[in-house]
Each structure stands twice: as C-alpha cells, then as structure tokens.
Design a protein around this nucleic acid. Sequence first.
DNA 1: TTCATAAGATACCAGTTAGTATGTTTGTGC
DNA 2: GCACAAACATACTAACTGGTATCTTATGAA
Lengths: 195, 195
Amino acid sequence: MNKAALTRQAILRKSFEIIYRKGYQSTSIDEIIATMQVTKGAFFYHFKNKEEMGLSLIKEVMLPNMHAIFIEPLTATADPLSVIYEMINGLLSDIIFFDVRYGCPAMNLVEEMAPISESFCEQLNFLVKEWQIAIENCLEEGKKTGVVNLDTHVKQVALFITSGYAGIRNAGKIFGIEAYTCYLKELKRYLDQLR
Amino acid sequence: MNKAALTRQAILRKSFEIIYRKGYQSTSIDEIIATMQVTKGAFFYHFKNKEEMGLSLIKEVMLPNMHAIFIEPLTATADPLSVIYEMINGLLSDIIFFDVRYGCPAMNLVEEMAPISESFCEQLNFLVKEWQIAIENCLEEGKKTGVVNLDTHVKQVALFITSGYAGIRNAGKIFGIEAYTCYLKELKRYLDQLR
DNA sequence: TTCATAAGATACCAGTTAGTATGTTTGTGC
DNA sequence: GCACAAACATACTAACTGGTATCTTATGAA
C-alpha cells in the first residue's frame, strides 16, 4: 500500500475510534487531525467533506470488521442455536473492539444518523441486513438438520435477536456489564425454546 | 401556574420536541428559542446552562410522560403477559408521541448521553429502572395467579423485554414500521412461552 | 535536469456555538 | 404611586465549526 492510501486509512481508523466514543456529529475534523500527524489539507485531499469520510468509514472500516466479528462466527459447524448464542456472547465479551460504556459502533451510528441522513441510513441498513440474513441462513440450516423447530419464523427470530443485541448494548451504557450477563441467560432460554 | 412557570415549561416542551428529532448535542439553544417567542435571556434566567435544562427535561417532562405511557398500562388487571404485550404494542403503535424515524426519546438519550455525562446517566438509569421494576412486579403478580411459569426469572425477563424494545426502536429507524409488526409477532411467541 | 503531478502544510473564512453583560418591562406589596 | 425584585429582552463575546485558498514538498517519468 502506498503512502497516500496509508494516510487515508489512518484517518479513517482514528475517526472510527473517536466517533465510537463521542458520536459522529460531536466529533470534529479538527479533533481527528489534532490527535494524529495529519493536517486539514491532507484530510480534505482524501475526502471531499465530512459526510464522505463518514460513509467511507462505514464501507471501508466497519463493514469489513463487522463482517469478521458478526458474521464469521456464524459459519461454525456446530449446532446453529449454540453458534448464534456464542456469537452474541462473543460480541458482548469482547473488550478489545468494544467498551460497555460506548456500546456498539454500528448501532450507535444507526441511532444517531439514520434519522437525519438518507445516505447513512442506506449504508447502515445494508450492514445490519447482512447480519440478519446470516442469522436467518444459520437458522434455516438448523431446520434442515432438525435442530430448530420447523414452525420457527427465521426472519422474525433474526430481527428479534439483532434488536435484542442493539437494545442490550444500549442498556449496558446505563447498567454496566451486569446487564450483559443477565441478558445472556435469558437469551439462552429464548434460543433453547426454538428447538 | 404563574407566567414564569409557564415559560419554563414551554421551553422544556419545545426542547423535548426538537431534541427528539435531532438529538441533545445537535440541538442548539438558538434553535430552541428561535422556534418560540422566547429570548436567550429568558432561557438563561430559567436554566443556568444547557445541561441543567437537559436534566430538567428528563425530570419534569420525560419522567411524568413516560410514567403515563410506559407504566400506567401495566396496572391493567388482565393477564400479565397480555398486559405486557399490549403495553409494547401500544408504544409501537403510538404515532402521536412517537415517530418510527426518530425512535424512542428516552432510549435515544441513553444512547447519546449516558456515555458522556454522569448526570444524564444517573437520571436515565432511574427512568429505565422504574419501567423494568414495573414489569418485574407485573410478572411476579402473574406467578402468584399461576399465569406465569414459576421458574421464570423476572429480572432477566424484564431486562430482555426492555432491551428488545430499545433495539426495535433502533431497527425501526432503518427498516421502518414493518420491523415493528415483525417484532411484535415474535414478542408474542416469546411471552407465551413464559406461561 | 526538467517538469508535472500527487500529497500534504498553513492560514484563513464565514457561520455557529454556549454563555454573558447589561439593559427594560412587569407584577406586587406597601 | 413608589420601591424593588422577578421576568424577561438585546447585544455581545470568545471559542469552535466545516470548508477553502494558497503555498510547499516529495516522487517519478522524459
């Protein structure tokens, strides 16, 4: 990768870090470039404005990362319901990419930007839908092998699970990690009941 | 109520309206006062700064309102699980206080402010906890009358439900009301399984 | 060496932000 | 009708916002 591409990626990574903690709108370009060895000229050389940077951030940083963390675990060959539980459990246990105080970067962006930006809404819709479809496929597979009850509505369940995840990330912000462990117990009960 | 108190309340109501649509940090005092016949002097006469206004907004507008919309329905005398379902159904069907694009005012504030303000976090913790406890009591009552399965962990379930609600409000922002109806079906299934 | 372009630095602008300083009106007890 | 404080109104500031215009340096082909 050449120097220009490295600079661009560095800006995106740093932006992601700060936006995760402060939100998109409250993160200023000045703050982003101040915390790294990059100037405003460089920033606007790589992105025509703040919005283009934000959208690039979703496409080039979040989508690949989320794919690895959210969808990859679902390709495991074990019992689908355990696989789904372990994916959520893994997400909530991850303290490298996530912080209980700041919730989930993707869901935070949905909350903040979906209502006020069509472009953000589209990108985030795509991101979350991809996750849901992966869960649906996982459940469908479980139906075939007889692990998942045949009258399970996979779309409904997938939405129920992803919504629950978004919600517990929200609750974690006010209740701390105890909320996570409490939630996981009930999630397990819920998933078992789909057998 | 005297004129001063009316002015104060008018500021809080208008602030609530705008903050619901734009978020707390992105709502400027200038915008609040510009959309009503009040000046900056009046604003800072009633509130020492923006934060005090925000906290007053939670205490004096949201807490009473939420109490009426979130907790009141739970005091119905019907089957507790139906009561809980109808409360969530009522919340998601309400298009007077809520808009699918903007989600839930309370959960939005949690998402935005809990991570960056201890004071907001405390207030919102209190608000959500009150709701959860009302659900717990409702379930406990159901246990007594034999409607709710005795090995149900009421705390777990209450957290699971409130989280799900917060999450579906989030999902609604990107998927629209179809997400609500889809979610409600699975919620019903989930609640029935607690019998 | 020349020179064109990519990549980045510096300084600045116009608009917006929360907050303040200082004024004016309005109500209320006496 | 006077005193005085509560309840506002007006005008301002200092800091910050996204974005631009202009300058400088590195790179690589001819």
